[in-house]
Design a protein around this nucleic acid. Sequence first.
DNA 1: AATGAATGAGCGTTCATTCAT
DNA 2: GATGAATGAACGCTCATTCAT
Lengths: 218, 218, 218, 218
Amino acid sequence: MNERSFMVAINIRRFDIVRLGKKDKYHRILDAAVKVFAKQGFFQSTISQIAKQAGVADGTIYLYFKNKDDILFQFFSFKTKQVFEGFREEVDKADNAIDKLRNLIRRHLYEFQRDRNMAIVYQTETHQNNRLAEAQIKEMSKMYLDIVLEIVEFGQEEGSMRRDLYMGLVKRVIIGSVDEVINTWIHSGGKYDLVSMVDPLVELFIKGVGVNHSPSTE
Amino acid sequence: MNERSFMVAINIRRFDIVRLGKKDKYHRILDAAVKVFAKQGFFQSTISQIAKQAGVADGTIYLYFKNKDDILFQFFSFKTKQVFEGFREEVDKADNAIDKLRNLIRRHLYEFQRDRNMAIVYQTETHQNNRLAEAQIKEMSKMYLDIVLEIVEFGQEEGSMRRDLYMGLVKRVIIGSVDEVINTWIHSGGKYDLVSMVDPLVELFIKGVGVNHSPSTE
Amino acid sequence: MNERSFMVAINIRRFDIVRLGKKDKYHRILDAAVKVFAKQGFFQSTISQIAKQAGVADGTIYLYFKNKDDILFQFFSFKTKQVFEGFREEVDKADNAIDKLRNLIRRHLYEFQRDRNMAIVYQTETHQNNRLAEAQIKEMSKMYLDIVLEIVEFGQEEGSMRRDLYMGLVKRVIIGSVDEVINTWIHSGGKYDLVSMVDPLVELFIKGVGVNHSPSTE
Amino acid sequence: MNERSFMVAINIRRFDIVRLGKKDKYHRILDAAVKVFAKQGFFQSTISQIAKQAGVADGTIYLYFKNKDDILFQFFSFKTKQVFEGFREEVDKADNAIDKLRNLIRRHLYEFQRDRNMAIVYQTETHQNNRLAEAQIKEMSKMYLDIVLEIVEFGQEEGSMRRDLYMGLVKRVIIGSVDEVINTWIHSGGKYDLVSMVDPLVELFIKGVGVNHSPSTE
DNA sequence: AATGAATGAGCGTTCATTCAT
DNA sequence: GATGAATGAACGCTCATTCAT
């Protein structure tokens, strides 16, 4: 008797969810930050610049991020990490080592081409002694290294790759090469198609630059 | 009565004068800066830290460098450039492409292992969108790329390297790989011998990771 | 199809409605504020902390208080003032000066012991050059001083107190002493019973610390 | 021959020492800070205001103080502490308890009258839950309490003070009274002579406000 | 030449207050 | 009324650079 019941009907259209979600502003800021970082580097970027780019007040940023460092941290924790996690499934799609490698690199180039600002920030901050996101970077780096290692070992078992390889070096050659290809693309202004580099790149890894020494021994 | 006179005798021997000469202090500051930059990155380093490390006053730095940026500029202009200029002669010593490549990389690894702080600063700041030393970096980068290009073309003419190579890619694979090998060494704390990586690295470039395809043609 | 409907049933019992009434919320906020001020001081306290402590939203506070300063103002205007107004009747209950003084101080100690947070805020902010609640503080202070003055004059007339007293000083000695007794109690963590201090305190005021010089003159 | 001797005569007049010593600017800033704190309270004061008052740049303050808190800390550590340390010798000058007490309070009032800004800041910040200078404040407070205790015990032994005193209370009455006398003086604008309060104050402590009860016992 | 105290612009961050919902 | 996201002014503090000595 002392109770009253209210029946409340709430209609939420998809549009509203997208437009008003907290996620919305979070991502707007994160994207703005990545854009600013890409242009000027983390330390040269100011909160004011990011806020302006995101179209919010300076203080608003602190509703979504603990501090400036945290923006970079979250970039690596969520934005980049997610990209790297996609690599795994791409590799699993193929059933032989060379295709696996090709899929991995293609996806890598594709994702980085797709979001050039992310690519720039990733390449830049990853080569820094940044204690800020060290754990995240190490984790992603290890994930990538492990996938490559796995692919090469798979190739050795299926007989498509040499058994006398210094694995530590193979990993670095592949990763370093992809890295450098992306860097060159970035510094060129992103003018040409990055993904089309996959096939010649993989071919180089497999066959090397040397001419073929007839029979077998080396 | 309110005045006191102090008589101070100061003896300065020629040796001291020489030891503190301009050339000397310039390098002391530059070395100190590189050490500090290596540890904390350019933007995180302060003039005070550099001055302290060099054993001079803050203001003294401005007698030798225009400003903070100029220190990095001069690092690339003189310290690093000189290292890269040594690469040329190393390449000329060999008379076949593969040895030329081997010599180039060996010298590269040797020099970077020799001065780890330089290696760190080079690797770090080179991957930045640093307008500060952009021209210097591009010049060195081009010099390196040209040497590699030259070597590969030489290899093609002497018949030791394939003619169907996408040269732009070959250059990036070689440079990216060396870069990554150095990076790994740096992050490992410089524990192992970097130079010993040359031979397996060159072998990888030449032969690739794939198994040998029967007869001859490729 | 893009729309979703949520039906939410909310049950609110009369009890809750009553419990959240306006009067109630005002006091909840004021109490919360006093608690927070007591712990951290006025300037170190934030509206957010008060809101959290009161269990309301930040904005809600501005429905009951003009601004942050106003909270302190109202603390002195209503919470503390009311306590001080109770002193008057306590004094009137007694019919001789010494008992009047005893009653005044007992009530003072009792009320401050009863609400330790109020005591802390009162003691702290009262010693500040706070323009915020200056008028209120002066008024209460004057009210207290007047009561003490009245008591002493009463004592002089009834013959229980010396006539050669510097009244301005007597007031300050009494007030300052009570103040200090409360301060000490606060800083001790409020461990012991404050009210039990009345009798020895009044005895000290009356007899002083000196030994009694028999006859009369001194 | 390789050696050269320089004889340098340095004349330093007392004036220069006083005017240029590092101490000079340190004290200028500290005095300025105390002035600003006195007017507006610690939390309401800004570094800019202090710098302006001291006639230096904002940054200069950080050459002499670790941070804003440190200014208050040093105020208590050096400026105020020194004043309190002077109390001891004043007490030792007298040979009976009552004169000791009189000397203590006279010096206290004298020093606080002499530097009104110090007095204000001391009275204000001392009544705050300031974790900033807590240790310093407690130390001074204890020093003062101990001196008073010592004086009263001395008085008891020499027979000039009652033996049936609740010592904890006596200390608080004396300190609280002096405190309040100073507070009143401060809030009056420092118009009248504070030191002249000593004699009537001590007389009150000794004899109390009550009339003399003829014979002896009470 | 060498010093290092002094400067002050500029940044990251906080928080009282507002207002659309 | 109640909310809490958003605001932006204001502050403490840092540090590259200057300049009197």
